[in-house]
Write a protein that binds this DNA or RNA. Structure first.
Length: 251
DNA sequence: GGCAGCCTGGTT
DNA sequence: AACCAGGCTGCC
C-alpha cells in the first residue's frame, strides 16, 4: 500500500497518482520498471545510470540525492519507506494513467533482451546499417542492453563491435542472440553489475562486475587468448573488445 | 545515422 | 581544473 507520497515537486505527480493504492504487481520491460496500483495508476521507473529504488523499514537521515520517497504499508501493517535516489539525474519517474498507457509506451520498445528471439534479432539487424553495437544499444530494436552487456555479449559471440549490423551472417546473429540471453541471465543471477551505484531494491550490490570479460578491461589480456584488449569510442560509448577473438567475418 | 549535451561524483 | 562515465533525447 502506498500511503503517502514524496516531497519532490518536479516528480510530484507520480506519487499522487498512486496514493492510497495497493501495489498490485511489479513489471519490467528492458530497463524500465513499473509499479501497478490496484486503482489503475502506474508508476514507471527508469534508473538511468545511477538511479536506485530501495525499500527499507526506515530511510537513513540525510541520504543524498533522494528525489522521491514513499511510505508503504506491508501486508501485516508494517511501515516501510521506498526511496528513489539518483545522483546523476539520468533516471526518471513517470506517472501513467493506466496499464493500457503503459502497454502503449512499452510497445514502442523492442522485445525484452533477456528472452529475445533469434529471428527477431535477425530481422532487426538486417534492417539497419549501423555498427552492430550501436544497434544493440537501441532500445527500440531490442530493449534492455546497456553498454556493459553490449560489449560482453559481442565478445561471447565473437563479433567485432564495429561490423555493420546488416552484414552479419545468420549464424553470427544466432550466436549473438544466444550471447545476449546468456549474458543477461548470468548477470541477473549475480545480482547485476555494481560498478559504483547500483544496488537492488533491498540495497544489495551485484557481483557480475567481477565476471566481466571485456568491459572496463582495456589494455588487459583477453581471458581466452591473452591478446591485449583494445578500447575505442563507439556511439559515444567506451567500447572494449578482443581483436583476436572478435572478428568481422564469420569463421 | 552520428553525436552533443544533459548531470554529478570520482579520478587524473 | 579538466576529464571521464553513460541512458536517453533531440539536433544536424
Amino acid at each position: 500500500m502506498l500511503e503517502r507520497g514524496a516531497e519532490s515537486a518536479k516528480r510530484g505527480a507520480a506519487d499522487l497518482l498512486l496514493r492510497g493504492q495497493r501495489i498490485e504487481r511489479l513489471l519490467r520491460h528492458g530497463k524500465q520498471l513499473a509499479i501497478v496500483g490496484d486503482g489503475g495508476g502506474v508508476l514507471c521507473v527508469q534508473l538511468g545510470m545511477t538511479g536506485r529504488v530501495v525499500v527499507r523499514s526506515e530511510a537513513p537521515r540525510g541520504e543524498p540525492h533522494v528525489h522521491a520517497r514513499w511510505e508503504l504499508l506491508g501486508p501485516r501493517g508494517e511501515r516501510k519507506v521506498m526511496t528513489f535516489a539518483d545522483p546523476r539525474r539520468f533516471g526518471g519517474l513517470t506517472a501513467l494513467a493506466s496499464s493500457t498507457v503503459l502497454s502503449a509506451r512499452w510497445a514502442e520498445l523492442g522485445p525484452d533482451a533477456a528472452t529475445v528471439e533469434t529471428a527477431h534479432l535477425m530481422q532487426a539487424l538486417k534492417e539497419t546499417r549501423r555498427a552492430v553495437k550501436a544497434a544493440l544499444l537501441d532500445q527500440n530494436l531490442v530493449a534492455g542492453i546497456g553498454n556493459i552487456y553490449a560489449d560482453e555479449a559481442l565478445f561471447r559471440a565473437g563479433i567485432t563491435p564495429r561490423v555493420l549490423a546488416h552484414r552479419l551472417r545468420p549464424r553470427q546473429v544466432e550466436r549473438l542472440a544466444a550471447a545476449v540471453r546468456e549474458v543477461l541471465a548470468a548477470a541477473i543471477a549475480s545480482g547485476g553489475s555494481s560498478l559504483r551505484d547500483y544496488v537492488d531494491a533491498n540495497g544489495q550490490q551485484g557481483g557480475y562486475q567481477t565476471l566481466h570479460l571485456v568491459y572496463g578491461r582495456e589494455g588487459e589480456p583477453c581471458h581466452t587468448c591473452g591478446t591485449r584488449l583494445r578500447g575505442t569510442r563507439l556511439g559515444g560509448r567506451q567500447t572494449v573488445w578482443c581483436p583476436c577473438c572478435q572478428s568481422a567475418r564469420d569463421t
